[in-house]
């Protein structure tokens, strides 16, 4: 895909008089691994919800793969693989069945490869209701990646994972980025991103307060 995968243009989200996100602008290109960081309540999750079409911006626009999420939310969804902090899954399916179902909805994908990349190979035929929270996240990740969407968005998805699982997920995301997908990973743990992200976007009080390459981490850390 030529051109940016994600264009957030002066997106603003208000709830009555409360401004949750204030004119956030962000452009992400294919193959880029972007870390969205900021303290709790900074507006990261609201920004993620708007990018994934879970919430509409009050003003401004968001385009994913060239599709406006407000005018064609279903079309935009097809361009995004989204892993929320607490993913909802069919508890009475196995991970393999769940990922296969998603692949069918998205028009195809390599189910076995997605399960393997997410680190679920040996457990893929157990019911999801028997899974730990970490395994549920891996299942959601496999589902998000199975059809190789151009944009992967993860909201605090590394929280609570044991170090080997987190390493595996990060490796999977790096591989996806290397294959051309854009990755946006939101977290409030800056250190996690230091080793994986190409670029950090810092959000504070609903605004982008810093946006730059990982090499500028020391400066960004000072802001955090």
């Amino acid at each position: 895909m030529s051109g940016p995968v994600l264009v957030v243009d002066k997106a603003r989200r208000t709830y009555g008089k409360i401004v949750a996100v204030d004119e956030v602008s962000l452009t992400v290109h294919p193959g880029e691994f972007v870390g969205l960081v900021g303290p709790n309540g900074a507006g990261k999750s609201t920004t993620i919800k708007m990018i994934t079409g879970q919430l509409l911006p009050t003003a401004g626009s968001i385009r994913v793969g060239g599709i406006d999420v407000a005018t064609d939310p279903n079309g935009a969804r097809a361009k995004v693989g989204y892993v929320p902090e607490e993913p909802a899954l069919y508890d009475y399916l196995t991970a393999r069945e769940m990922v296969a179902f998603v692949a069918e909805l998205r028009g195809g994908g390599d189910v076995d490869a997605a399960l393997e990349i997410a680190g679920l190979g040996a457990d893929a035929d157990r019911y999801i209701r028997e899974y730990s929270q970490g395994m549920r996240r891996k299942t959601a990740l496999a589902a998000a990646m199975v059809a190789r969407p151009p944009l992967l968005v993860l909201d605090e998805s590394l929280n609570g994972l044991d170090p080997p699982s987190a390493d595996r997920v990060v490796a999977a995301l790096r591989a996806a980025a290397a294959a051309g997908a854009a990755v946006v990973l939101s977290t409030h743990v800056l250190d996690t991103l230091a080793v994986v992200a190409d670029r950090l976007v810092m959000i504070g009080k609903g605004r982008v307060i810093a946006d730059g390459p990982i090499s500028e981490l020391p400066r960004l850390r000072g802001l955090f």
């Binding site: 994934t52 879970q54 279903n74 079309g75 969804r77 097809a78 989204y82 892993v83 929320p84 993913p87 909802a88 899954l89 069919y90 998603v102 909805l105 998205r106 959601a140 589902a143 998000a144």
Partner: peptide, 11 residues
């Protein structure tokens, strides 16, 4: 809904 909301749907 929360499950299907993560993916495109065939309405």
């Amino acid at each position: 809904r929360p499950i299907l909301d993560l993916h495109p749907i065939q309405p």
